[in-house]
Design a protein around this nucleic acid. Structure first.
Length: 291
DNA sequence: CAGACGTGGAA
DNA sequence: TTTCCAAGTCT
């Protein structure tokens, strides 16, 4: 087993072009890296940056976060989106505090068992925080491999087993090199091999890219996505939660009723928020973030 | 396993 | 203005 055909070029490119992100600094704690990974799920770096700084300043360790209420985590999450991540991150901090002596586990399987941590994040934390050898397969890497190896513009809509197998086959044997490779391919996908208007002229592996070799054929098949937002329950949930976030005290039902006209949809969204644990219905009829 | 789950900026 | 996309996870 030896390093893959791209590793040298990609690693060299990363050395010269990597962004200076705070969670990549040598002194970054595993917890700070874990927090960054949760925040970065489906969320652009530019929006995560200020949120991550504020979060780490307030709660430098898992036990710091666990001491506060889940509602405070949701409030601090502000408008980052997908607020269930805040709840899970708080739950994650609680489990780490109570079951792991406040220390972020370095074992992939143990990480995977934590709330809000799936296959990608477990691999990312094990690799980026602990220098272990794990295949990193996020949306960036999937796109790079689809192009460089498969010769198509975009990867399949849902992750396939063959993609995992491919990513594993490209993993350099040496753990420290593998960890570097993982973050480097991600960065390449984020900065050069982008979804729209890839900057192939700046790509260190353009001369080895199957998609480029094929003349960069356009994506064939059905449209890739169609996630409308206006009018959905998600939008209603967002508005309801914003009311609670912005209030220092529990709010009366009327305050929630005011943000959406359709009563049926509004009630459905509120019920769902309660089920999710993002909203706490008080006995006096008011509503609050979970305590 | 397809669909739900926020939000905002760029094209 | 509308569409697309951003370091996924959970059910």
């Amino acid at each position: 087993m030896s390093d893959n055909p791209y590793s040298t070029a990609v690693l060299a490119w990363y050395e010269a072009n990597a962004r200076d992100l705070p969670w990549r600094e040598p002194g970054a704690s595993p917890w700070s890296i874990l927090v960054s990974e949760i925040m970065l799920q489906q969320t652009p770096v530019v929006r995560v940056l200020p949120a991550w700084r504020a979060w780490m300043e307030r709660w430098p360790t898992p036990s710091d976060l666990a001491k506060d209420s889940p509602g405070e985590a949701v409030r601090m999450w502000d408008r980052l989106g997908y607020p269930r991540r805040a709840l899970r991150l708080h739950a994650c901090a609680t489990v780490i505090t109570e079951e792991h002596d406040g220390v972020v586990p370095d074992d992939h399987a143990t990480l995977l068992a934590l709330p809000g941590i799936g296959a990608y994040t477990a691999a990312a934390v094990a690799s980026f925080a602990f220098g272990q050898r794990h295949a990193i397969l996020d949306t960036n890497v999937r796109r790079v491999l689809a192009r460089a190896e498969t010769g198509i513009e975009y990867p399949p809509k849902t992750q396939t087993k063959s993609e995992v197998t491919l990513a594993e086959s490209l993993l350099p044997p040496e753990p420290s090199v593998a960890a570097r490779w993982g973050v480097a391919v991600m960065e390449l996908g984020a900065l050069v091999c982008t979804a729209r208007s890839p900057k192939c002229v700046d790509c260190p592996i353009a001369n080895q890219c199957a998609w480029t070799a094929a003349g960069r054929p356009a994506h064939s098949g059905p449209p890739r996505r169609g996630q409308t937002y206006a009018g959905t329950d998600r939008q209603v949930r967002g508005r309801l939660l914003a009311v609670l976030r912005d209030s220092a005290v529990p709010v009366p039902k009327e305050a929630l009723d005011a943000v959406w006209d359709d009563r049926v949809q509004r009630e459905r969204a509120l019920d769902a928020l309660v089920v999710d644990g993002l909203v706490d219905p008080l006995e006096d009829g008011r509503y609050a973030l979970p305590s």
